[in-house]
């Protein structure tokens, strides 16, 4: 009886996890891809937030959330595309967080932060990082479109009647 309950609990947890990841089940190779992408995003977030002393929480939170999100994608290509989109978001945030760390710390050093962070150089930095993010997004978009095109071709192939 007890073992039946445990089995039911395990089954329930499994279903919850499945729902969380959009009902997806992937091969070990595709799962590894999701893990690698998640760790990459987590590491970037950890790097981004280290000035705030949030290196490890950022790594953990972003890696888990991104991992769940990536795993919920239907195909490896969609996963990869999402990975590029995720990195693009983090890249755009880089110059902003660089300045935010200064702004939040400034008061403790008796510094008025605005002349340091609202300058043409900040705009240039933002532009450079937005450009990098656009490149990453474009790569993600191309991967996504190719995957969609492949799926449509597969569907059309499947729709051809035999004989």
């Amino acid at each position: 009886m007890a073992s039946d309950t445990r089995a039911d609990d395990a089954g329930g947890r499994s279903r919850s996890v499945r729902r969380l990841v959009g009902g997806q089940r992937h091969s070990a190779r595709t799962t590894a891809l999701a893990v690698v992408l998640a760790l990459l995003c987590g590491a970037y977030a950890a790097w981004l937030l280290a000035d705030f002393g949030l290196r490890w929480p950022a790594l953990l939170a972003v890696a888990v959330l991104a991992g769940v999100f990536f795993y919920s994608r239907r195909t490896p290509a969609a996963m990869l595309a999402s990975g590029f989109y995720g990195l693009a978001v983090l890249v755009v945030l880089t110059p902003i967080v660089l300045d935010l760390a200064f702004v939040f710390a400034a008061d403790g050093y008796g510094i008025t932060p605005w002349p340091f962070v609202l300058s043409l150089a900040d705009l240039v930095f933002l532009g450079v990082f937005v450009a990098l993010a656009l490149i990453l997004s474009a790569i993600g978009f191309v991967i996504s479109r190719r995957a969609d095109a492949g799926n449509e071709t597969d569907s059309e192939d499947a729709a051809v009647p035999e004989g």
Partner: peptide
Amino acid sequence: GDPWITLSLGKQYLQAELGEYP
């Protein structure tokens, strides 16, 4: 090393070069 350090000081350098630093 860590590129963050280079970025943060590099940004200050750029700001100074653009001539509008406190």
